[in-house]
Amino acid sequence: MNIIDEMHHFDLFSSLEDHQIEEILSLLSGRIECYEKNEIVFNQGETVHEIGLVLEGELIGISYDLLGHSNIYAHIDTYDYFGESYALIHHDLKLDVMAVTKTRVLFLDGNKIMDVHYPAFIKNLMHLLASKNVALSNKINTIAPKSMRERLMNYLYMQIRIHDSFVFDIPFNRQQLADYLLVDRSSLSHELSLMKQEGLLDFKKNHFIIYKVPDRKPTCL
């Protein structure tokens, strides 16, 4: 698959013709980089000037406190984006972006974004930024409850909505899920076991089946 064909998988290039996409990639100095598992793509504190488009692989946005505890902000999958807000305002990055599998990324120069004169592209970019704001709100709402079970239920029911199914795979292993929810891994595993015993759900590694939905709608929905 050539790079133009790959761009059709990204909403950023929706409604654009091949020659328009080619022109945009040239204008934005598109370049492709490859990363190995656990390799850092962007470092916390780095001033970012480029938007990353994931052509293949997976990444996470992760930060560390002074004691070395990690907090996962986001999972970035194939055909997703990262760094767009920071690239547009030239702000220092507040987290590391790390590959969790072998990953291939297309970078676009954020300094030249507003030089693109195709209204469809700018509209798609605004939609992308708005979608990321919604995702951040979901993250905040997910971890807002003090109870670990409520945080976990918020996250799992958000996945139900994303997958439109009560059977799904989550993008995190157990440690990564604990980091995302800002809880202890062993406590999380214990809570999951209790919920399984209570007949609320079943799971194996990152595969989940939800059996019972609470009467109260989770805060992330």
Rank of each mutant, 00 (worst) to 15 (best):
A135Y: 04
N173W: 00
S186M: 08
L152Q: 05
R216K: 14
L201I: 10
S193L: 13
V183G: 03
L136E: 07
K217Q: 14
D215M: 09
L192A: 05
F203A: 09
S137R: 10
M195N: 04
D202C: 03
Y155I: 03
S147G: 04
N173E: 05
L152Y: 03
R216V: 11
L194D: 12
S193N: 15
N154K: 11
I140C: 01
L201F: 05
I209S: 08
E198Q: 15
P145G: 05
S165W: 05
R161T: 09
M153I: 11
V213E: 14
L177H: 05
Q175C: 01
P171E: 08
D215H: 13
T142R: 15
K205G: 04
D169F: 03
P218S: 12
D215T: 14
H207T: 10
D202S: 15
E191N: 10
K196N: 09
H207Y: 10
P218T: 13
N154C: 03
M148H: 06
N206K: 15
D184W: 05
L188M: 06
N138P: 00
M153S: 14
K204L: 04
Y157F: 15
L188H: 05
I170L: 03
N154Y: 08
V167I: 08
L192K: 14
F172Y: 15
K212I: 11
M153W: 04
T219K: 11
V213P: 05
A178G: 03
K139E: 09
L177R: 06
M148L: 15
F168G: 01
K217H: 10
D169T: 08
E191L: 11
H163Q: 09
A144T: 07
N138Q: 11
C220I: 15
K204C: 03
I160H: 01
S147L: 01
L156Q: 08
L156Y: 06
R161F: 02
N154W: 08
E150F: 02
D184P: 00
S165K: 09
L152W: 02
L182F: 00
V167P: 00
L194P: 00
F172T: 06
S137M: 09
S147F: 00
V183T: 10
K204V: 03
S147Q: 08
F168W: 09
Y180W: 02
D184F: 02
L182S: 13
E191H: 04
K139R: 15
H190Y: 10
L156G: 05
K146F: 12
L152T: 07
I162E: 13
K204H: 08
S189D: 13
S147C: 01
L152A: 03
E150K: 12
T142W: 05
N154A: 04
Y157S: 04
I143S: 01
K212S: 04
I209K: 14
S189N: 13
P145A: 02
P214D: 07
D164Q: 13
R174N: 11
I162T: 11
K139Y: 15
D164Y: 02
